[in-house]
Amino acid sequence: MWEYEYSVETTAAPDTLWRHWSDMAAWPRWNDGIEKIEIDGPFAVGTGFTMTPPGDDPIRMRITEIVRGELFVDEMDAGDFVVRTVHRLERPQEGRTRVVYRTEITGPAADQVGPELGPAITADFPEVVAALVKLAEG
């Protein structure tokens, strides 16, 4: 297994952050790691979507878990490994929200692909979370 977690605290309200997360069609407006996104349905468990990073091939994913206002999980299943990213909101203290992005790569090939693929996937987490927080605070 390979794993990485990044988090930032903000004064932005969880419902404001959640509103931006649940509006998948708008992700490319604030997430520079997404050139294009195609969504197969509503923001709900089981909905599939295809994200295209700038200059890269499209990546097929699906939402596997949602706890409204708290977290959602998306997964990319490559057969011999699965990339799972948890997007979570925590309340460490009154008036503060912690935005957490956590990626785990599991499966039989995780030990081989994780050290190369994991850092490539998570390299922009600081910029993505900063952009989300700036939008939510604005």
Rank of each mutant, 00 (worst) to 15 (best):
120 A>R: 01
65 E>T: 15
34 I>W: 02
81 F>D: 04
127 E>C: 03
114 G>Q: 09
28 P>G: 12
96 R>G: 07
123 A>I: 06
55 G>P: 06
130 A>F: 00
127 E>Y: 08
89 L>D: 08
26 A>I: 15
130 A>H: 00
51 M>S: 11
107 G>D: 09
54 P>R: 07
118 G>F: 09
44 A>H: 03
20 H>S: 11
72 F>G: 02
40 D>V: 06
27 W>K: 08
83 V>G: 06
61 M>F: 07
111 D>H: 15
110 A>F: 05
82 V>H: 03
55 G>S: 04
24 M>Y: 11
114 G>C: 11
111 D>G: 15
92 P>Y: 09
96 R>C: 10
28 P>D: 11
19 R>D: 13
108 P>N: 14
104 E>A: 09
129 V>E: 00
44 A>V: 02
94 E>H: 12
35 E>H: 09
25 A>S: 15
32 D>I: 06
121 I>S: 04
24 M>H: 11
15 D>T: 13
76 M>V: 09
122 T>P: 04
33 G>L: 00
114 G>K: 04
130 A>M: 00
80 D>S: 15
105 I>W: 01
19 R>E: 12
67 V>G: 13
49 F>S: 10
24 M>T: 12
27 W>Y: 14
101 Y>P: 01
68 R>D: 14
74 D>F: 03
85 T>A: 01
18 W>F: 05
29 R>Y: 12
68 R>C: 07
101 Y>L: 10
46 G>W: 01
16 T>N: 10
44 A>S: 02
49 F>T: 10
88 R>M: 13
120 A>T: 05
77 D>T: 11
29 R>F: 13
75 E>V: 12
52 T>K: 10
23 D>Q: 14
128 V>H: 05
46 G>K: 00
20 H>W: 13
88 R>K: 15
32 D>G: 04
59 I>K: 08
50 T>A: 15
